[in-house]
Design a protein around this nucleic acid. Structure first.
Length: 425
DNA sequence: TCTGGGGTCCTAGGACCC
DNA sequence: TCTGGGGTCCTAGGACCC
């Protein structure tokens, strides 16, 4: 029987902020989305105040501040670096690790003494905390879906020992049934709000009823995906550990603007910036794009006149060249733009991605002596050393008055020398 | 009056995840 | 005034092919 652990960091973004500021230890902390728009991470103290996930910050700000909440703009440079440190520690505990998201990993624990799994979970927690300062939860079970559930239980029930660890393999079947019966289907990995509502309408009101529903009926009425979830809940492992992250099939860079944008030239700066960033991500996976799509829209929440549009441009041959991708994106924007609207957001998607190495050249492809890839390697190299955006296309602009608000940003403690308190002194 | 069967590819939309 | 960003997979239906 396979054994999986799911390890995740509690309130990850908030915990990262706490590591570097002891004053945040016992106070409620939230981290906001880009543009300081919504609450996307909350500590338990902030949850206790009734602050919901995804809630617009301007709606809860007054209440939150009265309650002593400290709010931060999201600092992805800090979180990405802390994530790497955490994953490095986790890799010491398992031969195979799947980094599932910025704050979660699945570990293959096969080969460990079954009697020692729970205490192993405790050791994982202790070492990650000691080496990175981040608190994690550990769920252990025979399938990935059950490991997710175990992790959920470890957070909810302080009774499991050691604290923060739940090993479902040790839980007697009758007790497991009770725990499932007390769990909403929505709290099962793979079941979202919509499916949960449809299931409830069919009389499947809790996770126990879902597990025991007839699998073939579920497949016919819903999908093979949900059938797999049910099998996994029964201990039949259908989802394997995926160690190598497959290359992205599409790359999206999009942002809401810090304020409404009316002028084409400002939109062009934004779209060129997004295309530049997207091309960096593309080259990082050694890919080339066959097409570029651009979208833009006005504010969907207020009474501004609505306009929303997208269009795609096919490239003559796949490319990872920043200049070509920015050019294509700007051409697409030109087609979409309608004057007189107050635009709120734009985005660039790179489509039809393929490995750059196997691309099909045309009769007019540049010769090797004018290798555009060499130029891009130089650009990427300089930006890596000197900071993102040091070299960019002129189209990406200088003033960038449209860029997002981040008024509550913490320092990049681990990735910028200027931001290290000691270095400033 | 009669109007096959089977396959592939593409796209849009819906659902999920963090 | 203020409402995030970036992904994946599956399915149904239409176009098209022989």
């Amino acid at each position: 029987m396979a054994t999986f652990a799911l390890v995740d960091v509690n309130s990850f973004y908030c915990s990262c902020e706490r590591v570097f500021d002891v004053r945040l230890q016992d106070v409620p902390v939230v981290v906001l989305s880009n543009n300081d728009g919504c609450v996307i991470a909350r500590t338990s103290e902030a949850k206790a105040l009734g602050i919901k996930m995804g809630e617009p910050w301007f709606k809860v700000r007054d209440m939150a501040q009265r309650g002593g909440v400290k709010a931060y703009s999201s600092n992805y440079a800090l979180y990405a670096d802390m994530s790497q440190r955490c994953m490095t520690v986790l890799s010491q505990f398992a031969s195979s690790v799947e980094v599932y998201s910025i704050d979660e990993s699945f570990l293959a624990l096969d080969g460990h003494d079954p009697a020692r799994l729970a205490s192993l979970g405790g050791e994982i927690r202790a070492r990650v905390l000691q080496w990175t300062g981040l608190p994690v939860g550990v769920g252990i079970a025979s399938t990935k879906t059950l490991a997710k559930f175990a992790n959920h239980l470890a957070k909810k029930h302080p009774a499991f020992t050691p604290a923060g660890v739940c090993n479902l393999i040790d839980v007697p079947p009758a007790r497991l049934d009770k725990l499932l019966a007390a769990t909403s289907t929505e709290d099962i990995w793979g079941v979202g709000r919509r499916l949960s509502a449809r299931l409830a309408a069919q009389g499947i009101e809790d996770a126990l009823a879902l597990r025991d529903a007839p699998a073939d009926q579920i497949r016919t009425r819903y999908s093979v995906v949900l059938e797999r979830t049910i099998l996994e809940m029964r201990g039949v492992s259908c989802l394997a550990l995926e160690e190598v992250m497959p290359d992205r099939k599409e790359i999206v860079v999009s942002r809401s603007f810090g304020r409404p944008v009316v002028e084409l030239h400002e939109l062009r700066e934004a779209v060129a910036s997004y295309a530049t960033r997207a091309s960096e991500k593309l080259r990082r996976q050694a890919g080339a794009a066959g097409g570029v799509s651009v979208f833009l829209h006005t504010n969907l929440f207020n009474d501004d006149p609505r306009y929303s549009a997208s269009t795609a441009v096919q490239l003559v041959e796949p490319s990872a060249d920043m200049r070509e991708l920015v050019g294509a994106a700007c051409a697409a924007l030109q087609r979409l733009f309608r004057p007189g609207y107050r635009y709120a957001k734009a985005g660039v998607m790179l489509l039809d991605l393929a490995p750059a190495a196997i691309r099909q050249e045309t009769l007019w492809s540049p010769s090797l002596s004018r290798d555009p890839a060499a130029l891009m390697r130089a650009v990427d190299g300089i930006n890596k050393r000197m900071g993102r955006g040091t070299l960019r296309t002129a189209a990406a602009g200088q003033r960038r008055a449209w860029s997002m608000r981040r008024q509550r940003l913490s320092p990049c403690y681990t990735t910028r020398w200027q931001d290290v308190p000691m270095a400033r002194a």
